[in-house]
Write a protein that binds this DNA or RNA. Structure first.
Lengths: 249, 249
DNA sequence: CGCAGACTTGAGCTAATTCAAGTATCGTGG
DNA sequence: CCACGATACTTGAATTAGCTCAAGTCTGCG
């Protein structure tokens, strides 16, 4: 949890990892968008960079007090809420450059679990400090509102998916969304590795894992994709897109 | 749209309706939470109050440029997104004291339609001005973040509902949620009037209108509620709550 | 190498949808 | 104020998408 580790060796490793927002390659994806050099420097003094989160570990859990937002610097996370009777709903998958924890601002407690799906690394953004800085840096203030707003828009998209779409459409939307996000990050948009289980995909899409598996197989049979365990290759993107738009729900 | 109406009579009517945030009865529900008298006065200079929206009218529509957030002063709205192929997903129902339009901050265009389900009245909050004021009024800045965060949390709840729950649970959750929100506003929590059609409820809950109708009838047969058109009476709240927690999904 | 977790596939079941027909309600204009 | 048309709602019957249960395979990790 704490950034100042008691173990010197780790401390060194932190220093090694420490980079400024100013020269971070994620600058254009992450929080600092639109800030000038001086503003970036101020941001740097606040943000603790390079905290590792091992695969399977929680970055935070529902119920924990809220102190910071986190930016994914490297890796892959799932966020999920657990209902009173123990049902899990994955609310999102988060990759490089995306911000986690915004749900916690409302109550000062986290309302989701955020679990690393592969060995990952985050930057910690102490929210109180960010807020204070945002008063002097309008671009930062505005950007934060924007990022939260984007999250709301994304959630509305998921509602549309969950409320209106059939299994095939959901999966197609999911794969195309992942593809597009990988593309933005400079990875292949046509071939990628799923970091999550079929069950987690199912939870996110409101389907059972068997249905996810079956539908992926179906897509493969139809020549839309190739599946090999968690490796996905999009063979016929147009057909997937057509699936999304044409089905009359 | 514009607040300074060219018609004197209307202008008078606006003045009649015009009240300050300072003495607004919704103070505790709405934006000004936690502001002191001076800060409230500053807010008052920005906010245009008492804009009427007739039943069936759009407060805004997806695609329109974003200028303002809106606070519901009176009445009832639905917000919905339309997919490319024309399917509607109601993303929320909004009542007195709630803020509309936060999704638009991310792109500077509205991404939902907001439609009045009864004759309503809103306060217009020009976002640029709000943002500027927020720099000088940390409590306002923080409260805005909070309100947006709350929306994200709410959306996660809807995802849980859409992804995991059966029709009966969804309806029970819906009715209990409405009940609780009416209660907060000083209305009866056990007897209320639905402002929306069965179809709109269905859209929100990811069900067809026939399923909504059937499930309401079922609840009535079981003695949980009484239904008379859009008038709902909650007879056995505990059973509804039990429905929510027990079903193993 | 062996085991646990992840995945696939089949068969039968069920919750919710679709289709259909009929009733109630509301707003409008005569 | 009443009649009428449009919209909203209810209910039934048949259909189906996705779920549950079950069995078996694969894979990766210790």
């Amino acid at each position: 949890m704490s950034i100042q580790s008691p173990i010197p060796v780790r401390d060194v490793s932190f220093r090694g990892l420490r980079q400024s927002c100013s020269n971070c390659s994620l600058r254009e994806l992450c929080l600092p968008i639109g800030l000038n050099q001086d503003e970036l420097r101020q941001l740097d003094t606040i943000i603790a960079q390079g905290r590792p989160v091992k695969r399977g570990e929680a970055l935070y859990r529902a119920g924990e007090p809220f102190r910071s937002l986190y930016a994914v610097r490297l890796g892959f996370f799932k966020a999920s809420v657990i209902s009173e009777d123990g049902r899990e709903q994955v609310t999102g998958f988060h990759m490089t450059g995306e911000l986690l924890g915004m749900d916690a601002i409302s109550t000062d407690f986290h309302t989701c679990d955020a679990i690393a799906l592969e060995d990952s690394e985050v930057c910690e953004l102490p929210f109180a400090d960010i807020e204070t800085l945002a008063r002097d840096v309008p671009a930062l203030q505005h950007h934060l509102y924007k990022v939260m707003s984007r999250e709301i828009v994304r959630d509305h998209g998921v509602m549309l998916l969950l409320g209106n779409m059939k299994a095939e459409e959901r999966l197609a939307a999911f794969l195309l969304n992942l593809s597009q996000r990988f593309a933005v990050r400079g990875y292949s948009s046509s071939s990628f590795h799923l970091r999550m289980t079929r069950e987690e995909i199912g939870s996110y899409l409101g389907l059972k894992l068997e249905t996810v598996s079956r539908t992926l197989s179906k897509f493969q049979d139809q020549g839309y994709i190739k599946v090999q365990n968690r490796l996905i290759e999009l063979v016929d993107v147009d057909s997937l897109k057509r699936l999304l738009n044409s089905c009359q729900g």
